[in-house]
């Protein structure tokens, strides 16, 4: 635990917590986190994990910053419109905390590259905006035994759950199959009130930090549902499904599938 003077000041509010201390901060600084998506959720998750001093933050997204992103995607800015989102967040995160090694991957996550991408990471965060990616990330994390903090938002509602393979449920225990394209909200229906991803992303970042620190209760048997209009948080139990096609006792999905069905990209 050889902190520099700057690090002692920067992380002092962590160090004085009994549950963190210098040892916990060291764990954070040694952690490697992979974030899927540099949008509404990826921005706040990455922002807080950068502030916390996570050692390496690998983030993937193949979109560019658009004006319509800026109402909620807080790590981008007006002068970066047209820039790859991962380059934009890298600039923001490095300005916040130069200690953090930000690896920006301007590419699409696929069944061909995902195992390589998650292989050297301690924990994965899903901030993706579409079902094919969500299921791809879930299945790959279950197969690779990687913990996954999953978050989703739409309109005024958000949900967060933490998947630790073998220990608890996975995304398919909850929602076994991808919804058919017709049931996914069309792009016109898919608004989101700007502060919502901050709340959900903040919860995801907190789950990641608790996982790294090995402290507190993770959402491994439950899901938090936040209803902004009701100003209400609900924590619902999520049992592991013994018949789950990917993490159940007799899985039928044992290798990654072709996830790219005809789904409208909601662009969160």
């Amino acid at each position: 635990m050889d902190f520099t003077e700057d690090q002692i000041h920067r992380y002092s509010r962590h160090i004085i917590l009994p549950e963190v201390g210098g040892k916990g901060q060291e764990k954070i600084m040694n952690a490697k986190v992979f974030i899927v998506g540099a949008g509404g959720l990826g921005c706040p998750v990455g922002y807080y994990l950068t502030a916390a001093g996570v050692g390496t933050l690998k983030i993937i997204d193949n979109d560019k910053v658009e004006l319509s992103n800026l109402q909620r995607q807080i790590a981008h800015s007006t002068d970066r419109i047209g820039m790859p989102k991962v380059d934009s967040v890298k600039k923001t995160f490095e300005a916040l905390n130069p200690d953090v090694n930000v690896i920006a991957l301007n590419q699409k996550i696929t069944k061909e590259n995902i195992f390589d991408l998650i292989g050297d990471c301690d924990v994965v965060v899903d901030g993706s905006d579409n079902f094919p990616t969500r299921y791809l990330v879930n299945d790959a994390c279950v197969m690779a035994g990687k913990p996954l903090v999953s978050g989703a938002i739409l309109r005024f509602e958000g949900q967060v759950t933490t998947i630790v393979p073998k220990l608890g449920h996975c995304y398919r225990c909850l929602f076994e199959e991808m919804p058919p394209a017709g049931l996914v909200p069309s792009c016109q229906e898919a608004g989101v009130l700007g502060a919502l991803p901050g709340i959900v992303g903040g919860l995801q970042a907190m789950e990641v930090l608790k996982y790294i620190l090995d402290k507190g209760d993770l959402l491994t048997n439950s899901m938090i549902i936040f209803e902004a209009m009701k100003a209400r948080f609900r924590k619902v139990k999520v049992p592991k499904n013994p018949d789950c096609p990917v993490c159940g006792n007799n899985p039928t999905i044992t290798e990654l599938q072709d996830y790219d069905a005809e789904h409208c990209r909601l662009n969160f």
Partner: peptide
């Protein structure tokens, strides 16, 4: 404060 405690705590941890 709080660096007085931060320093003391880091010393104790080691």
């Amino acid at each position: 404060c709080p660096y007085t405690f931060v320093r003391s705590k880091l010393a104790i941890e080691g």
